[in-house]
């Protein structure tokens, strides 16, 4: 298996690998040399396990990379070749609508993505549809508050028209959407998020 480092994320390194003929990604959680072993080892392995589990479920219900292999600190998954929505071309209205569809399916399955921004959405070259990646911060929850944080983050990363399109398809796909929108507006009214919402997004 030939390894080639593609990028360095906040806590993991991403390598391109050939996994039995499938073009894949290896996501390896780096050691954190500044933390004591008793904290960092359980943290890394628990996060790896949890991410793998959620990725497997996510890819069975919506457009997300397929899980191929899991080790203690590493995950091998299908590589989505395409254009990242945070690049120049942007997400666009159709993309925003697809994003709403993706998130509605994750939320209906009680999956909070945890980092649902443009940077984690890719237009695939192979079937030209939108894929969601990086479940590194994902967790299971059905609380409207937890779910609303995905919307908050997404809202901050896109334009107003894109967000409006997103809202339409999200509410079509998720029957508790009203509850989540309600929570979102509550959260936005809390002091500490006022200056961190839409207007400060680029």
């Amino acid at each position: 298996m030939a390894l080639k480092k593609i990028s360095e994320g906040a806590e993991a390194d991403i390598y391109g690998v050939d996994f039995f003929g499938i073009k894949s990604i290896l996501k390896y959680r780096r050691p954190k040399p500044y933390l004591i072993k008793e904290i960092e080892e359980p943290l890394r392995s628990a996060r790896t396990r949890s991410e793998a589990r959620i990725l497997a479920r996510a890819s069975s219900i919506t457009k997300a990379p397929r899980l191929l292999f899991v080790s203690k600190y590493g995950i091998i998954m299908e590589k989505i070749n395409g254009i990242n929505a945070s690049e120049k071309k942007g997400l666009g209205l159709n993309g925003a609508s697809e994003a709403g569809d993706i998130l509605s399916k994750l939320h209906a399955a009680n999956i909070v993505h945890g980092d649902f921004t443009k940077a984690n959405l890719i237009f695939s070259n192979s079937d030209s549809s939108l894929y969601v990646i990086d479940f590194g911060l994902s967790y299971n929850s059905n609380s409207a508050e937890d779910l609303s944080f995905d919307l908050l983050l997404f809202k901050r990363s896109v334009t107003r028209p894109e967000y409006a399109k997103f809202e339409i398809s999200y509410s079509r796909g998720f029957k508790r959407s009203k509850e989540v929108f309600q929570k979102l507006s509550e959260i936005e009214k809390r002091g500490r998020y006022q200056n961190r919402s839409l207007d400060t997004a680029e």
Binding site: E8, A10, L35, E40
Partner: peptide, 18 residues
């Protein structure tokens, strides 16, 4: 103490890299 400071350091690391 160790846990609280580790959490702050990890969040700072993420912010630094982003």
């Amino acid at each position: 103490q160790e846990t609280a400071f580790s959490m702050i350091a990890e969040a700072a690391e993420r912010a630094m890299l982003l």
